[in-house]
Structures are given as structure tokens and as C-alpha cells.
């Protein structure tokens, strides 16, 4: 874990309210694993006061660049996405537990890996697909990306380029299948050739992904976000309900969880 002031190399609007920030952070880029996040703040300001947790979409270990996908969702992230190129950002990271790689999961090595993304949740899955591409034993990657409209399929080319098959669903039918991405997942699971499902997106989507994967008997890992304080497991702010009672820390126990660890009922209710 490092706390370091870095240069924002570029900050590009890629969809309404969505920006890709490229940051020069060689040490964090080299240490970063798929699914981990950085905790970003703007130095020498108190507005916003707290850091914001942001998933790493790509870590270019050669050039030392991090690419973060940021959705302007409130006052803090609105200020962050307005930063110009050349600005300083303070990063704490890499933080959290990464996605387990397919070879660490007992799901059958001859089968496919399914990635299910919803909206801004695509970011850590791009990073995961990128890492799986460089494995000696690269799995067959079937990716699915859902959003409300075509506009919100942010950075879809990044995921498509790293997948063997790529499907899209939009709620208004403006791109791909009309409907929810979980309907596409249902078709994929029916084929009975899935080794593991990785999901990241809205809570309701992930809950459905987890339920369907469990029903199909396929291991499932989801990446969560939550309002966060310290980012290192100390303050217990970023709690989500744990299966069997109590809470898990998104920053330290997660952000990636085995779907069986999570109390999905509590997450739907929040």
C-alpha cells in the first residue's frame, strides 16, 4: 500500500457523466491486481474532504499508467472529474482483495469464464479480462454488458477487445438485446459450459447474477462499492451484510466477494 501524489495525464469524457482518468502512478500500477482499487483525493483541499474509492480499469505496468473509470455521482466525484490534465491527485493503493483467477477456482478448466458488467461496473472486469489474456492458459472469455441505453455502455470496446465473445443488452433496446443483461446470462448458463461468473454492476443486477449462478452451480464473484472512509479496514464504514449475519468491509474483505459470503437480501433492501 502506497500513498503518493501523482500526475493526472488525461481526463476524458466517454459517456454522459462518465470519465476515463489516466494517471501516472508507476508503483501502484505495477503492484495492482485485477479487482483492486485506489482511494483518490485532491491534495490541499477540503472539498471534497474524504477520499473516493475508484476501480482500476487498466494498469499499464510498462508505462506506469492507471486508467480509472469515474462516474460523476455526487458533489465529490463531480469535482474530481472536472480536474484538468496535469493536475495532482493523491492516491492510496492498491487496496482491497482482487478477483481470484480462474485457475484458483474449482470450476472445470475446460469451461468458459463469464463476465457480467452493468454500467460503470465494467471497469474492474476490463482489468480482469486483460489479466486473463496474459495467462499461460488463457480461458475462453464470454462477456456480457448491460446498461439502460446505448450511451451508458461506457468503454464497451475495452471489454469487447479482451473477450472471445461479447453480448450487449440495453433496457430501451438501443443496442443489443432489449432487456436486462441477466436475461443474456440465463442463456449462457443454460449452455452448461460455465466455469465461473464474475460480476460487477448495480446491486440488483449482482444479486440476480449471484442467484442465477448459484442455481446453475457455478462459482460467482462480485465486486462491490459502498460509501467508504479509510479504505484500509480501520473505520468499518463501508459495511455490507454478510451471509449468516454481521458485516463485511468492502475496502478490506472486498471489494471482490464470493457471492456466497454476501447477504443479498440486505443488499437489495439498502
Amino acid at each position: 500500500m502506497l500513498s503518493t501524489e501523482c500526475e493526472l495525464l488525461s481526463n476524458q469524457l466517454v459517456a454522459p457523466d462518465h470519465y476515463v482518468m489516466q494517471i501516472l502512478a508507476p508503483e501502484i500500477a505495477r503492484a495492482s491486481l485485477p479487482g483492486q482499487f485506489v482511494h483518490l483525493r485532491i491534495p490541499r483541499t477540503m472539498d471534497p474532504l474524504l477520499r473516493r474509492p475508484l476501480s482500476v480499469m487498466l494498469a499499464d505496468k510498462v508505462h506506469g499508467h492507471l486508467r480509472l473509470l469515474v462516474r460523476a455521482a455526487g458533489r465529490g466525484t463531480e469535482i474530481i472529474v472536472a480536474l484538468p490534465s496535469g493536475a495532482s491527485v493523491d492516491l492510496l493503493g492498491p487496496l482491497g482483495s482482487p478477483f481470484p483467477m480462474p485457475d484458483e477456482i474449482d470450476g472445470g478448466s475446460d469451461k468458459d469464464v463469464l463476465l457480467v458488467a452493468g454500467g460503470v461496473g465494467v471497469a474492474p472486469l476490463v482489468c480482469l479480462a486483460d489479466a486473463m489474456r496474459s495467462l499461460d492458459d488463457t480461458p475462453y472469455i464470454r462477456s456480457m454488458f448491460g446498461a439502460s441505453t446505448e450511451d451508458m455502455l461506457v468503454c464497451w470496446t475495452e471489454l469487447a477487445a479482451r473477450s472471445d465473445e461479447f453480448s450487449v443488452a440495453t433496457e430501451d433496446g438501443s443496442a443489443g438485446e432489449e432487456g436486462l443483461i441477466t436475461e443474456v446470462l440465463a442463456g449462457q448458463l443454460e449452455r452448461g459450459h460455465a466455469r465461473v461468473v464474475y460480476g460487477c454492476g448495480p446491486a440488483a443486477m449482482m444479486a440476480e447474477v449471484a442467484r442465477m449462478s448459484a442455481e446453475a452451480g457455478v462459482p460467482c464473484y462480485c465486486s462491490f462499492e459502498q460509501r467508504m472512509g479509510c479504505g484500509v479496514g480501520a473505520c468499518l464504514s463501508c459495511a455490507i451484510g454478510a451471509a449468516g449475519g454481521g458485516y463485511l468491509r468492502v475496502c478490506k474483505d472486498g471489494p471482490v466477494f464470493n457471492a456466497e459470503q454476501v447477504d443479498w437480501e440486505a443488499i437489495r433492501d439498502e
Partner: peptide, 14 residues
């Protein structure tokens, strides 16, 4: 076990 989330929210300068 603690309180139900969300457990933190930023406010003006705090």
C-alpha cells in the same frame, strides 16, 4: 455487529 449501512456520508467540511 454495528449499525446497518450506509454508515458514512460526507458533509460540508466534515
Amino acid at each position: 455487529v454495528g449499525n446497518r449501512p450506509p454508515r458514512i456520508v460526507e458533509t460540508a467540511a466534515g
